[in-house]
Nucleic acid binder design. Structure first.
Lengths: 167, 167
DNA sequence: TGGTTTGTTCGGATTGAGCCGAACAAACAG
DNA sequence: CTGTTTGTTCGGCTCAATCCGAACAAACCA
């Protein structure tokens, strides 16, 4: 039964997405809802997502909102037609990774860097605390630049940039 | 009071580390304990960490174990002397980021890739599920290579590799 | 040897996140 | 205008993580 095989394979991948979602600070339900949308041909409404995922309507409502906000799925407000809101997965996987990355890493790096800089200004130059703070700031400045540049490249470009860099 | 200023700045940075720890999947206590060790000159024992952080002895014991396992701090078992176990922070911040990165991203990428590959083998080539799975695999293969290469470079090298890559 | 310091392990309290069902609001269909 | 379908919001339940204190083991000291 290759139809069964396909269903099993699909389910495996979606389970894997549930796990990945947890690693990246999202909920399991977010992983499954995205997965169902990723494999769907076209768009799905909230009742359809309830049917496909088994989650409660309220859960689907909440999770789709956060997924839309981050950019993992898109809200297509169909003006006409019976059902109102339709959701579609962002299928460009690299975009998603960038979005998640941005959401969690870039923001963290920037707020941390701001705090460190303020702390460094406050510390007298001869204090014992000056050197470790400066050290911290310098690494985070590198990191900020790296994250910034990485977010502007495609996966293939990034890979090539690293592979061709020999010194 | 520049002494106070130093103390305040130090506290700010440690609080920032608590936050960062949470973002990277560690506990607040882990962030604080690392922070105290980062600013300490030399090593600290568990009782000293209890005194400095305000956490219970059991908490310090558990957290230092996990931090050692990941590589954020180092356990210096002083053979002689009154106190037994001494801890020292890994002060090379880039190493730490690599460790955390490796712990959370690299492992996730590899297990995901394994699952995707298995799923792709299982799916018949003409199935509707074939194309999205293949798409997923290709992006993750790029990602695996990127993460692998990135983990081998220093912050400065990585930054330079990205900055000099123009096409 | 007895007492103290150190470190780990256990059970339990507290907290927060995730999810559900019910209640509600709003749009649509008959 | 009344029913139904859709979507959001609210309160509550459950479970897991975090942290604490107590109990225990082991090393050190007098």
């Amino acid at each position: 039964m290759s139809d069964d095989d396909s269903a099993v394979a699909r389910e495996r991948v979606i389970e894997s997405m549930e796990q990945s979602a947890e690693v990246y600070g999202l909920s399991r339900s977010a992983g499954r809802i995205y997965g169902v949308l990723y494999f769907a041909s076209g768009t799905l409404s909230i009742p359809e997502l309830v049917e496909e995922t088994g989650y409660a309507k309220s859960t689907v409502s909440n999770v789709t909102r956060t997924l839309s906000r981050i950019g993992l799925i898109h809200r297509r407000s169909s003006a006409g037609g019976g059902r109102r809101v339709q959701f579609e997965a962002e299928r460009e996987v690299w975009f998603i990774l960038q979005d998640v990355f941005q959401q969690y890493i870039q923001r963290e790096v920037q707020t941390t860097l701001r705090t460190i800089r303020r702390a460094e200004e406050q510390v007298p130059p001869d204090a014992r605390e000056q050197e470790p703070i400066q050290n911290l700031r310098e690494t985070y400045e590198d990191l900020e630049e790296i994250v910034q540049l990485a977010s502007e490249y495609s996966a293939a470009e990034l890979r090539e940039a690293l592979e061709t860099y020999e010194q």
